[in-house]
Every structure is written in structure tokens, then in C-alpha cells.
Design a binder for these strands. Structure first.
Lengths: 247, 247
DNA sequence: CGATCTCCTTGACCCAGATCAAATGGGACC
DNA sequence: GGTCCCATTTGATCTGGGTCAAGGAGATCG
């Protein structure tokens, strides 16, 4: 962890910020400016990073680990509304408070920018605002696609949808088999999966078992998943088109 | 309708674009430029404005009428993912195709801008991009709040949530009674409400009847709703905080 | 004035998924 | 090895909302 942090802070070359988010089209001098207001924060598994309604002092993106966005009702019912994987962006430039809880699901490292100077820079460099607009539109698409999952899909389809999204996000070359096979570790507990899918953890467990029995997935231990045929999984998810939930 | 259109095209003074969306912070010369690429389109009730996947040639906002954004599965299950009321914005600057169907629920007038010149202008005028970013963040918040409704609320809570959102959107001064009372006409059929809430139309009808029986709402005809006590309605919706679904 | 169409309501029954409860299976730590 | 402490699985039962089916209540139209 410390090693990773040091590596990154030397030159950000590994920092996902540079690849996917705001820096994608930045000039060298703009990157230098960002470097000035950049800092890293680490969180422990289970720690709440931001409480809904809190004033946020930073924006940034996930370097390593998993975080989730959750909405909660007074009586304790909770719904996960986003999944933050490495390189995903957190923050609401131009907005005061957070709209939902952000929780670290695993130990987590974030690459942050102080919010005020970041916003100032955004005003001066149009392409940063445009990049953020694009990212936000992607998130909006993902959220709306997830609304279909929550509102209309069966438990089995929901599980298959989640697995296929995680599989796709995790699709680093090398993890791909020669066939359509795909292997990954679930980054979520059954309970977290349930909160994502609007189900109970028992139903999640039962449907995982059912998918295993039917040969759609193979399970080694509780978390290690092999999908022998992604096409089959996506069929089970109830859509062939499909898109990615970004968080 | 025609009168409205003429009034607007004279000087846009009634055009919601100017108030809420991209023009909010525009200088006079920028407004002139927008005027150049502006045009109006009308749609009939039931007409599909944009098909999911289509290339969109314009962005714009609703002047009058109601439209909805819907996602559909191959087997016909549909989920409404957004409600477009007058002044709401439609479009994805910087994105090629539409991500979902946009359907006119009533006769509809839209104020449109040709997409390409609009995007060109966006590049030159940072505050337009920023305004769009803000709007998109609002929509994202609304979508995520709706995910909680879809994933975790009961049928009764879902209905109450929808009614309270529509009541709030419809809260023009004058329609407010002296008390906490609120009166409005439902812009949606029972079926459309069901598609929005992830329910069947029968369940929607039953829960509407139940809320009427319990005195939470009063119904005159099928669509005219009186809410004697908004506080009570929001309690039924299961949240006191609450926020608006913008579409 | 009926005829028809669309939207809505209500009833009867059923099932997917929730709830309640108990058992299993690793890790970590002594 | 033993014993917590978890996450997870599995079983038994219950129920909210879906499904199927039969009216009713306005509109519109001849």
C-alpha cells in the first residue's frame, strides 16, 4: 500500500486520474497545476468516506480498492446507487454537499484534488468541464440502466446483470481465457450485492447457488468466480445489448 | 398552442430555455447566437420522439406537454427512467446516440437547438458547459434517488413518492392552498405510473384506492388529485428529507 | 341514444422473494 | 488442535404484489 502510494506520488504515471478522468486531455502545464492541488488519502475497509449531506472538500478518483455509494432510509433500508472501482471519479464540482454516503468496502486509496482550486481551474480550462460532463453523462446512463434492473428484472436476472458488469469491468487482458471464459474475484459480500440489487442476502445466495447448479458460473470458495461463457451469462441477465454500470 | 409558439419565437421571453437551462447565464450576443440555431418541434401524444440508439440531431427542452424516457427489454418489459416536464432538458452534448426512447405522453412542444452548432458554441463558452454539468449532476442525483424508490420501497411508498414529486414539480403559487394542501392533475395514466415505479397498473390502482380510503389523498375523477396534507404524504413516501426527480 | 374504445377498478388466486431460523465452513488467534 | 467470529448456505414458512379475469365509467362518434 505504502509502496503504491510512493510510486504514484513520484510521477502520477500509474495514477488512473491521468488515464481516464479529468487529466485525459490536459497539457503539461495543466498537469503541473493539478499536481499542486493533488493529495492522497487512505481509508480502511468499512470506513465512511463521506456522509450524505456533508460538505465535500475534495474531488478525486479511486486508485485502489472498492467504494460504494449508498442511499439510506430512516428505518435502515439501504440501496446502493453506485460502485466505485479503481479509476472511477467521485465528486460534484459546483455542488456543495454530498448527496449520498460514500463507503470504503475494502481498504482504499484515493487520489484527491482540493475542491475550490479544482473548480477554479475548471472555469479556466473548458476541456476539463467537458470531460466531466461526458463522465457524468456516462454515469447517468449507467444509473438509468440500473433502474431497469431494479424495477423490472427477476432476482436471477439481477444477479446475472451484476456479475456481467463486474466481469466486464475486471476484463484485463490475461484474465481472459482463450474462449469466452472470464475469471474474477467478487469485490462484494453477499449483503453488498443484495443492497446493490434491491434483494435480501438470502435471495442473492440462493440465486448464486442456482446459477452454479445450472452451469452458468463456477464458484471456488465464496468469491472466486469463473464464467465459462459470457454470452450465456448475458442471456441470463436478460439483455444482449448491455452497458456498463460505472458508479 | 400555436399562440404559445408564436409568442415564444418572437423573443423567447416565455421560453423555459432562458430561465432554467443553458441560457441562464448567457450574454445578449450569446443569446442571439442561440437564436440562430433554435427551432421548434411539435409532437403528438404517443409519438416516439427519439428511439434508443438513434443519432440525435438536436438538443433542447420541453416547452409544453409531458415526455418520458423509457428503457425496454426484448420481451416488452419497460421501465421509465425519467419524466420530462416543461423546462426540462433533453440531449447529450458530446454523445452520438440516444441511450433510451423518448416518448411524448401528451401533445408536446420542444424548443430545440441544432446539435453540432450547439456543441461548437459549448466549446467556446465555458459557462454553458458548466451549466450543463450542473443540470446533469442534478439528473444523476434524481436518478439515484429513484433507485432507492425502485429497489427498496413498498408499492404504497412508491405511489406516495411519485405523487409527492409531481406535486412539488407542479407547485405554482396559486395552486397552493392556505394550508399545506396541494391540488394537481396527474399527467400520467396508471400504466405510465406503473412503468415509472416498477409495478403493474393493477397494483397502482389498488394503492391509489387505498391512499384515498385512508385520507392521504382525495380523487376527483381519475386524474384530479387533492393532497390535504403534504407532510402526511411525504411520511407515507418514507422520507422526510426528499428530493425531486427531474428527468 | 346506443356502440365502441380507452382507461380504470376490483376480485380471486398464485408465486417469487422476504422473513425467520438453523446449520456449515473458513480464517485468525490462542 | 480448539474456539471465536464471520460470511455464507440452506430450509421452512409467509406475504406483497403479480397474474388472470370481470366489470364500470367516461369520452367520442355514428
Amino acid at each position: 500500500m505504502t509502496v503504491l502510494l510512493d510510486t504514484i506520488s513520484q510521477n502520477c504515471s500509474e495514477c488512473p486520474i491521468r488515464h481516464r478522468a479529468v487529466c485525459a486531455r490536459c497539457e503539461p502545464d495543466e498537469l503541473d497545476e493539478l499536481e499542486q492541488i493533488k493529495f492522497y488519502r487512505t481509508f480502511e475497509a468499512g470506513q465512511t468516506i463521506i456522509w450524505s449531506g456533508d460538505k465535500m472538500a475534495f474531488v478525486g478518483s479511486v486508485v485502489s480498492g472498492i467504494a460504494t455509494l449508498t442511499q439510506a432510509m430512516e428505518d435502515g433500508r439501504t440501496q446502493m446507487v453506485g460502485l466505485l472501482l479503481p479509476s472511477d471519479f467521485v465528486g460534484r464540482p459546483g455542488r456543495e454537499g454530498a448527496a449520498y454516503n460514500v463507503v470504503a468496502n475494502t481498504d482504499l486509496v484515493m487520489c484527491c484534488f482540493r475542491k475550490k482550486p479544482f473548480e477554479d481551474m475548471m472555469v479556466r480550462t473548458p476541456h476539463v468541464a467537458q470531460r466531466l460532463l461526458e463522465m457524468t453523462l456516462d454515469e447517468l446512463d449507467a444509473a438509468r440502466e440500473w433502474m431497469l434492473v431494479l424495477g423490472r428484472k427477476t432476482a436471477r436476472e439481477k444477479i446475472a446483470s451484476l456479475l456481467s458488469i463486474i466481469a466486464r469491468r475486471d476484463a484485463t487482458p490475461g484474465k481472459r481465457g482463450p474462449t469466452d471464459q472470464m475469471v474474477f474475484d467478487l469485490p462484494l459480500t453477499r449483503e453488498a450485492m443484495a443492497d446493490y440489487l434491491g434483494l435480501t442476502l438470502e435471495t442473492v445466495s440462493r440465486q448464486m447457488s442456482a446459477l452454479r447448479k445450472d452451469g452458468v458460473i463456477e464458484l471456488a470458495g465464496k468469491r472466486h468466480v469463473t464464467v465459462p461463457d459470457m454470452g450465456r451469462l448475458m442471456e441470463e441477465a436478460g439483455d444482449d445489448s448491455d452497458g456498463g454500470m460505472l458508479g
